[in-house]
């Protein structure tokens, strides 16, 4: 099994998965706590549109997804700035428009059905050197963001209005979190695909919420669960000869199940 790790595409995929496993669940914590679930749907559809456009233009799918997701985030910030259009309405509208445009692009640009399907499944072994660099840079930026601003971010997670009156620029942090979510989802789509993205971003975050007693522990546990899911999921996929995304999801789901049992037994005691 170890001989596979000598192959450069597998090395790149492995490193990209580990980096994402450590950093992306931290964004998942914000997605869950700040109720950004509809935003995540919008970004998944945006990444699909970006990938379809990139395939049509024969450029990096990751680049296409990043550009479209950032564009969607900027549109969302502009549209919801005055507060008269709820974020949920705007994300739903942009999601529907994105998927409609993606279907048009796939049809008109003649993107083969197999390639279009690969957008849904992701492919970590297709990660290029530059994409690995982008993935690592984004992962490092997310870690740094949390480490440096953890106390202020705790306030934003606790209560948006309380944070604002405590002297924290909540709106600026919200925008940074939205941009971070857009970038994270674009990269996750490339790694594990739309269908299994939640196993890398959301499931570790949800697991941490089950067992952590403080926000520091919540961030740490979500990151450790993400790392374990990525590492063990990768090994499992090589061992059982199944797709990496399936291996990561199985591991992440197993850890989630164990944490549910821990919470249940803690209550019983």
């Amino acid at each position: 099994m170890l001989e596979y790790l000598a192959l450069p595409p597998i090395q790149r995929g492995f490193l990209a998965l580990l980096t994402a496993g450590i950093a992306f669940p931290l964004i998942g914590v914000f997605v869950i706590r700040l109720n950004l679930i509809t935003l995540r749907f919008m970004l998944m559809h945006g990444a699909l549109l970006g990938s379809a456009l990139a395939m049509g233009l024969q450029i990096s799918p990751l680049l296409g997804s990043l550009v479209i997701n950032l564009l969607l985030i900027f549109i969302l910030i502009a549209v919801t700035r005055r507060g008269d259009i709820p974020t949920g309405y705007a994300t739903t509208f942009l999601m529907v428009v994105s998927i409609a445009l993606a279907v048009i692009v796939i049809y008109k640009a003649g993107v083969p059905a197999k390639d279009a399907l690969s957008i849904l499944w992701g492919n970590i072994y297709a990660v290029r050197g530059t994409e690995l660099a982008v993935n690592s840079g984004v992962g490092a930026a997310i870690l740094l963001f949390i480490l440096v601003l953890r106390r202020r971010l705790t306030a934003v997670l606790f209560n948006y209005e309380v944070a604002a009156t405590s002297g924290i620029p909540s709106e600026t942090y919200r925008r940074v979190i939205l941009i971070g979510t857009g970038v994270t989802i674009a990269i996750s789509m490339r790694l594990v695909g739309a269908l299994l993205l939640d196993s890398l971003v959301l499931l570790p975050a949800v697991s941490s919420l089950l067992v952590a007693g403080s926000t520091g522990a919540m961030f740490l546990v979500s990151s450790l669960v993400g790392l374990s899911s990525a590492l063990l999921g990768f090994i499992l996929s090589l061992w059982l000869d199944i797709p990496v995304s399936a291996g990561v999801t199985l591991t992440s789901a197993l850890i989630f199940g164990i944490f549910i049992l821990i919470k249940h037994f803690r209550r019983s005691l």
Binding site: F158, S214, M218
Partner: peptide
């Protein structure tokens, strides 16, 4: 939100 009492009071000091 898993937040300790200490962390809640710390929000008031975060700025």
């Amino acid at each position: 939100l898993p937040i300790s009492v200490r962390e809640v009071v710390d929000i008031g000091l975060s700025a």
